[in-house]
Design a protein around this nucleic acid. Structure first.
Length: 267
DNA sequence: ATGGCAGTTCCTAACTGA
């Protein structure tokens, strides 16, 4: 089973590139972030014609997540509130950043973690609060039914210095500050491990490059798009790679897709 | 060496992103 995650920075702008990519890269599941469109205007048919079932959760202009799956998903829900109490969630579900469903006994959780603007800002506090509720959400999912989890998406956090092209002085930078790294570590403590680092340990591999300053051509990037897996799935993972080819096209997303392959032991 | 981005809408300016 191949599961991809890709922040496309507007599905309507990137529609053709995503169709082309799915035709050449046969994945079972594609998790999208930053679709930037209300559900009624989502371009469904080009992807349904490729055989995908679409599960979407969008809003106008900002955010938005979707899962495309060749097999129908079970137990689909959006937002935190379906799993965690409304008191705990507060206003966090107003921004569309969470969608989940089950296929082949694997619960997919597709996330668009808040950016955080700058360290110490209101948006940064929102990001930390959001990550705290994410931890409660994942714990609750596992308590309700112990299951294999693939938690993937745009995390907007580079967990380690080897995930950044130039880590010096980045402790005051969003995506690398100690508080958000710690917040993500606490989320992963529910029992999740980074699929990419099972196969690749060296620095220099990134999934996002700033549009400005020739970030991609100089490979000045960050690895902020991840697949986190529960232990059995982690053991069964056979590869995890970043596909930089769409980032080389004209008018690309600033993120590249990341694909994990898992050999599912169906007993 | 320098300056250098791209998406959206309340659409040609302001916002958000990372």
């Amino acid at each position: 089973m191949k599961i991809a995650t890709w922040n496309v920075n507007s599905i309507r702008t990137r529609q053709e590139q995503v169709v082309d990519w799915l035709q050449t890269t046969k994945v079972d599941v594609l998790c999208l972030q930053e679709t930037k469109v209300v559900d009624a205007d989502f371009p469904r048919s080009p992807f349904e014609e490729l055989g995908y079932h679409l599960y979407i959760c969008g809003q106008k202009a900002y955010n938005g997540v979707a899962i495309f799956s060749l097999q129908p998903l079970q137990q689909v829900s959006t937002g935190f509130t379906t799993v965690v109490s409304g008191d705990e969630v507060g206003d966090l579900d107003e921004q569309k950043r969470v969608i989940t469903g089950v296929v082949d006994g694997v619960r997919l959780v597709n996330l668009y973690v808040p950016n955080g603007a700058s360290v110490g800002s209101d948006k940064y506090d929102y990001k930390l609060r959001w990550l705290k509720v994410l931890g409660a959400y994942l714990r609750s999912l596992l308590e309700k039914s112990p299951q294999a989890l693939c938690v993937c998406g745009d995390f907007n956090i580079a967990l380690e210095d080897r995930d950044i092209h130039n880590p010096q002085g980045k402790d005051k930078h969003i995506m690398a500050s100690p508080a958000e790294r710690q917040a993500l570590q606490e989320v992963l403590a529910v029992g999740l491990a980074d699929a990419f680092r099972k196969f690749t340990t060296e620095a220099g591999h990134f999934s996002w490059w700033d549009y400005r300053h020739g970030g991609f051509s100089r490979n000045r990037g960050w690895r902020i798009d991840h697949h986190y897996l529960t232990p059995n799935l982690y053991e069964q993972a056979t590869s995890c790679r970043i596909d930089t080819s769409p980032r080389k096209l004209p008018k690309p997303s600033d993120h590249a897709p990341v694909i994990v392959e898992i050999y599912l032991d169906k007993d």
